[in-house]
Simulated scan of single mutants.
Amino acid sequence: MNTALRSAMASAGLSPRRLAVRVGVTGKTVERRLADAELTPHARKREDACRALGVGEEMIWPQSVKDRVKTGHDREVVHSYPYRSACPSDVWGELTRGASRELFFAGYTNYFLWSQIPAFSETLRRKAGAGCRVRFLVGDPEGAVTRGRERAENVALSVSTRIRTTLEQLERMGPVDGLEVRFSDPEDAVYHVGLSVFRFDDDALVTPHLARLVGHDSPLLHLHRQEDSGMFDRFTEHAEELWERGSRVPA
């Protein structure tokens, strides 16, 4: 018997029939939940029941709460989005503004950041001036991999144009101590174009690029570092390896 549910119903003055009306189920369904503590309603019904009873879910169905707690490597996944464009712009802005040690933008083009993050150039300049390391790793707009990706995507705003947009935005900022820009090595470009890694101290936004889809149509993971050699470390180490083999962008 689910004694916690029965006690909460008694405290709220709700009979099985009245609770059923509040939640949108039958009275028999409530009776079954009362009779068997192992039976757990769907998440929406649990929320509605707890709201009607004025108690927390952990009081009535504690196992459902435990099941939602991430363990192991999964706990580094803060959120996942089926499309990069589904990630709210507030997330990008808050992560950028919150970083104090490391801002590393290792997307192949990075051009969208100026429209995604308000006052992006000014924020970068302020962060670099405060001692934060700011880096951009982009693909070579003249490279063979760039041309191949352009043929695959076949969109009006080409990959090379998007890269040049980023380079122009950075050039407009003028010399900024603490800001570094590199092209990925030609031999690494195929690995770079397929995976974008954006680091903000101990958080990262990662986009694996799918087939011919442009970046905003590919999925995105928000990771937060919790352990050594976890998902955060694996992806950021990939970006660091590309950076170490990259070359300075010609002035």
Rank of each mutant, 00 (worst) to 15 (best):
L223F: 11
T161Y: 06
G148Q: 13
G54A: 04
Y108M: 04
G27K: 15
R162E: 11
T165E: 14
E94N: 13
H79W: 07
V138N: 02
E58L: 08
G56C: 06
L210C: 06
C132W: 05
A43N: 08
L14D: 12
A152E: 09
R51F: 05
R182L: 01
V30P: 03
R212G: 05
H238L: 03
R135P: 01
E58C: 09
T40L: 02
L95R: 06
T146R: 11
G13M: 10
E102L: 13
D48S: 14
E76A: 07
S89E: 14
P208K: 02
A43M: 11
Y108V: 06
S64I: 00
D74K: 13
V181R: 09
S229C: 08
P208M: 08
G131F: 03
E237D: 15
Q116P: 00
V21R: 11
A12L: 04
L124K: 01
L220Y: 00
R44T: 11
H79A: 15
S160F: 00
E94V: 07
L221A: 04
S100M: 08
P175W: 10
A130C: 05
P208H: 09
E38N: 12
A10N: 09
S160I: 00
L34A: 05
R22M: 12
N154S: 14
M231T: 00
H224V: 13
F183V: 03
G98I: 12
F183A: 05
K45C: 01
Y108C: 06
A251P: 05
D177P: 14
R212T: 11
